[in-house]
């Protein structure tokens, strides 16, 4: 089994030398910005703008009556997660505290994520921020937000004039 974390090694800045030093500097600067802010055509992932870099990762689905947000947060204690609705933003914050108080223990593998996290989701206008229900089961946090009754699709009859 491959235990080395997968990582994309290609960077646009890693070019052959031999160009003019200024050209090389320019390339280097470009690649720094690309790596930081993300390049839509490049291979690197941006730590700031790419949704996949955020933790926890979210699934957002919509049904006729509600919106559902699901996040995988294994090993969380209920008191460590906080949900806030302000305006049309839903904020999920929390801290996954490690069970590893005893730092002296001998770690062979350490892949699981710990620490503070925060995600903010902008709710569509149809969502009713007063009707939010959140549950946590088997390590999956589910947040259901009801839609305004008047946001549900309405059928409009076309009549003969």
């Amino acid at each position: 089994m491959d235990l080395v974390p997968w990582r994309n090694k290609r960077r646009r800045g890693d070019r052959d030398t031999g160009e003019h030093p200024l050209a090389r500097l320019r390339d280097e600067m470009e690649s720094v910005f690309e790596r930081f802010f993300g390049n839509p055509w490049g291979t690197g992932r941006s730590p700031l703008l790419s949704p996949t870099a955020a933790f926890p990762q979210l699934d957002l689905t919509e049904s006729d009556s509600d919106l559902t947000i699901r996040a995988e947060l294994p090993g969380l204690r209920l008191e460590d997660v906080k949900l806030e609705v302000s305006g049309n933003c839903l904020r999920i914050t929390g801290e996954k505290s490690a069970e590893r108080e005893d730092q002296g223990r001998d770690y062979h593998y350490s892949e699981r994520q710990f620490g503070a996290f925060s995600r903010t989701v902008q709710l569509p206008a149809a969502a009713d921020p007063n009707k939010v229900d959140a549950t946590y089961k088997d390590g999956v946090l589910t947040v259901k937000i009801a839609k305004h009754p008047d946001a549900k699709p309405k059928r409009i009859k076309v009549r003969n004039a």
């Binding site: 995988e72 947060l73 294994p74 090993g75 069970e99 590893r100 223990r105 001998d106 770690y107 062979h108 593998y109 350490s110 892949e111 699981r112 994520q113 088997d138 390590g139 999956v140």
Partner: peptide, 19 residues
Amino acid sequence: AVDIVEKDDELLLMADVPG
């Protein structure tokens, strides 16, 4: 993702399997 910790009398393996 797993953590494997060695303790005096056992190895402890913790795996994240949400859901």
